[in-house]
């Protein structure tokens, strides 16, 4: 249990999430990728608190914010999905490509 170990875990989760966010068509799957990336951030935040600066609560606050952001991201994501789905009957990013520009 070292800082490097935790950061390695964080990096791995972040990279997997990035892959998912870049490669997935479905908006729901894309959001799963984002969740994994934030998951990595959470691990890093907790690790910094414990291994670097346990006296101040900054790391903990960061984790708390990240968890909230995850919830908000999901709520917004689903709202957007619902709106796109209602308007165009698609749930994939490719299907909504004409939204660009």
């Amino acid at each position: 249990m070292t800082l490097e170990g935790f950061l390695l875990l964080a990096a791995a989760l972040f990279a997997i999430g990035l892959y998912g966010a870049l490669s997935q068509q479905s908006i729901v799957m894309l959001m799963m990728g984002l969740e994994l990336m934030i998951n990595g951030l959470i691990v890093a935040g907790g690790a910094f608190w414990y291994f670097v600066a346990p006296q101040t609560a900054d790391g903990q606050v960061l984790v708390l914010v990240a968890v909230t952001v995850m919830a908000l991201e999901m709520a917004m994501g689903f709202a957007v999905t619902t709106a796109i789905f209602r308007a165009r009957d698609v749930d994939t990013t490719d299907g909504a490509e004409d939204l660009k520009g």
Binding site: A12, L13, I16, S23, M32, G33, L36
Partner: peptide, 10 residues
Amino acid sequence: LAVASGIAVF
């Protein structure tokens, strides 16, 4: 476990 199930997602 965390990484393996993270990969499993996709």
